[in-house]
Design a protein around this nucleic acid. Structure first.
Lengths: 343, 343
DNA sequence: TGCAATGATGGTAGCGCTACCAAAATCCTC
DNA sequence: GAGGATTTTGGTAGCGCTACCATCATTGCA
């Protein structure tokens, strides 16, 4: 009977450190997690023992004993969408120095998938959860409300947060973009939308509101598809819209990929931008300012959303929940050549 | 003294399921992990009890007891780079139905960061590790060699795998792209490169090899920067290259973002593509075929690399390590308008 | 029919860590 | 300098699960 190294790969445990440092195991545990509760002397002895043995705490044992994993669960609808990629980067960057790991999953824009993943995440007792959007299913919402950890909904804001929120109003974004096209002198402004997830729907709603307010709305101006967005699709949608409505003089694109597809198609078909057709995108990806012509877009603060989401969750974990449970990071209209009809 | 629900959130445990099903805890454990080792009758009883209680196994307890977490550790140098985003998507998609979670981390193209993250990952005893590239530091390599789990190096292939590899030859890619430009009739072909990570370096080496073989190499044709790649940077590099070498008649771009920057700048400066300057990119992002002119590029199989990496690791976990430890997924030259000087 | 081989099931003992409480050491205050 | 308050340290008992081995039932074969 040799209980030593029976299963573990022989890696040092907290008991080994304790023995070497001549203290109790629990003191080592404390020295690592709450150094201020351990005297300077012991802290140094322990630190030295840790280094000598190359001790690294086992996160699984830790999670089991404390009934709390040092994990941020993050649910996003897409991994390849540049917008979410930046949000995710913001989250990872904010979390990289702390003890927290990230558990990322892709819902593929499916509420059911989100439920399933939430269930999975919850089984780990995460330290916090970050979910995309505000349109969770009833089941998901219930799971999140009873989750016993901070929850941050990101990308959008709305009136009824599960816990906390950081994002901006897509409806307002759509409205501002559309109004900008109207002010630029466009009258028959098309809406091109792909995927039509809830955020796209709200941008469309903002477009409709602006168009109706100006007395310019016509349902034939709207061209959408449930197909995932891409530059190629932008070109196709634009062709469809033009076939339906040859007199278009502006398009508000659901996102920048579509706008780029429009720009390319205009080159190909020798349509003058902005003179014949003005173009406005959404998100303001890096390339929009370099495009020819440069493309007007709504700048959104994706990276910052990721950072703030982590910041808010962290504050809640530390017990200092921000008084502002809803953070509106806004957006900015970036005016560029594609809507500048003056020259 | 009430040991019941003392710490756990009152969620059902395997013991609760066992009690309800009238079997031993270990039998429940087996029914869940190796159903074929449990009789049909008990399996059904257990399944019913699981559903009735809404039991979800605790992955932390599982990992602790079995000294093996059901986690795939994945290290990539960037989360926003479209290429790695697709690799990561392939990995997630392949893993989504199985029991495995993904632990993703961003090395920011830093070997030191990679070492640190590897250490962190290893403390979880992952089921497999997927790392990017073949240029690990000595320390990282040692950690991986003694990792006691399958290791897959992705994106590149080389002669000396740590364990397994799936990718393609960036050197060959660079050579093929350059030869294509030469065959198209270009003579003063510039190389534009950003970031200059090891893969970019090898594409550059391929370019040099092709140019030297054709007797066309001139160091002034090469323009690189350690700055991270972007479309904006592509424009700037192109301007620099042109200032240095106004007689350029072709450019091989390290990646498609840079190629796109070149295309836009050519529009702006009224340089005819491909007649005056031909352009070739690398990776073949979706938008290259829609661009105007459409852009010749080297198609790489990112998503497939992610899928294969998981497949190989999975096979190794199941004990059927593939005999081919190095999988070359190759690449394809996609000829498009930007290098078609015939018309 | 008897007995080894095989398969199904269960008990026990941890995995490595921390919550909880108790004990010891230190610090005040009057 | 006594007595209480406070800080620092340690022991014990799990967290929920599975590895290991023991046990019992079933089967196969002479």
């Amino acid at each position: 009977m040799k209980p030593r190294t029976r299963r573990g790969g022989g890696r040092p445990t907290i008991a080994d450190v304790a023995r070497l440092a001549g203290v109790g195991a629990i003191t080592v545990s404390r020295a690592l997690r709450e150094p201020e509760r351990v005297s300077e002397t012991l802290r140094q002895q322990i630190q030295q023992a840790v280094e000598e043995l190359g001790y690294v705490p086992d996160p699984n044992a830790r999670a089991l004993a404390s009934a709390r994993a040092e994990v941020f669960g993050v649910l996003v609808p897409s991994l390849t969408n540049a917008v979410f990629a930046e949000v995710v980067r913001g989250i990872y960057d904010s979390l990289s120095d702390g003890p927290f790991r990230v558990q990322l999953a892709n819902t593929h824009y499916s509420g059911l998938e989100e439920e399933r993943l939430l269930q999975l995440f919850l089984s780990q007792r995460p330290a916090a959860l970050i979910v995309s959007g505000i349109d969770q299913t009833d089941t998901s919402r219930r799971l999140l409300e009873t989750a016993d950890c901070p929850v941050v909904q990101i990308m959008e804001i709305g009136p009824d947060p599960i816990d906390m929120m950081v994002g901006f109003s897509h409806l307002e974004g759509g409205r501002v973009a559309t109004n900008h096209l109207i002010e630029a002198g466009c009258r028959r402004i098309g809406f091109l939308g792909a995927r039509m997830d809830p955020r796209s729907q709200r941008r469309l709603a903002g477009y409709k509101a602006a168009m109706k307010a100006a007395g310019l709305f016509d349902p034939r101006l709207v061209t959408t598809t449930p197909v995932p967005s891409s530059v190629t699709l932008g070109r196709d949608l634009f062709r469809d819209a033009l076939a339906k409505m040859p007199s278009l003089d502006g398009v508000f694109c659901n996102n920048d990929d579509i706008a780029l597809g429009v720009i390319f198609e205009c080159h190909r078909a020798a349509i003058a931008v902005p003179q014949t057709i003005s173009v406005c995108g959404f998100n303001d990806l890096d390339m929009m300012q370099v495009a020819y012509p440069s493309v007007t877009s709504i700048r959104t603060h994706r990276y910052e959303i990721g950072r703030q989401a982590v910041g808010m969750a962290m504050a809640a974990i530390d017990g200092s929940r921000p008084e502002n449970r809803i953070v509106d990071l806004g957006f900015e209209l970036r005016r560029r050549e594609s809507t500048d009809r003056q020259n």
